[in-house]
Simulated scan of single mutants.
Amino acid sequence: MKPEEKGVRPEKVSEAAELDQRVAGALYMIIADYTGMDMPTTTALKDSLRERGASFNVVKKTMLSRAVDADIAELLQGQTAMIHGDGDVVEVAKVIKKFTAKNEKPVVTGGFVEGKAVTANDVVALAKLPSKDVLRAQLLGTLQAPCSQLVGVMDQKVSTLVYVLSAVKEKKEQEA
């Protein structure tokens, strides 16, 4: 019997549909090799990621390569896990970097952020960035700086005028 005649098992169809849905709904997807991680370590990583709004799922390489439109064969090494979510990718990258520094696993092989391919080095670079809140504060400070400097200059000019008038007043009082 040919494979076409056999058909695909319903479990496989539902797994593929679920994976397609996860990939389509994710703002970012980081692919990692989790070879050698034991269950307590994996659970600890999953809990850390869940706090940041991310999920850690073990996936089959063939299903993942079919779900992603790009050629990702070089990313699929060892036992493959997919870390995905729709929150702040920088926070998730920091969690992964911190966890990897402590446990030496998982090994990030690459991924996608907002539809663009990223390498493992790019994920490390993301971990070095400040969080969105810090970046927003820096932007706000940059936008407010000209206004506060203008207020300072105007205040200085008014103060100078007051000092001059005070000096004229004192001089006239001494002459009188």
Rank of each mutant, 00 (worst) to 15 (best):
M1P: 15
M1K: 14
E4G: 10
E11N: 14
A16V: 12
A17S: 13
A17C: 03
E18F: 08
Q21N: 14
V23I: 08
A24I: 05
Y28L: 01
Y28K: 04
Y28T: 04
D33G: 03
D33P: 02
D33F: 00
G36Q: 08
M39P: 10
T41R: 14
T42F: 00
T42P: 00
S48P: 07
A54R: 04
S55P: 05
V58E: 05
V59H: 01
K61Y: 04
K61C: 09
D69K: 15
A70K: 15
L76G: 05
D88G: 06
V92I: 06
V95N: 05
K97Y: 08
F99A: 06
E104F: 02
K105C: 06
K105A: 11
V107L: 10
V107S: 09
G110K: 01
G111V: 01
V113Q: 03
E114L: 03
G115A: 08
A117T: 14
A117L: 13
V118H: 02
D122E: 07
V124P: 10
V124C: 03
L126Q: 04
L126S: 04
L126N: 04
A127I: 01
L135N: 11
A145T: 10
P146L: 06
C147E: 10
S148K: 13
Q149L: 09
V151I: 14
V151G: 12
K157Q: 12
T160F: 07
L161A: 14
V164M: 02
V164W: 00
K169R: 14
K171H: 08
Q174N: 13
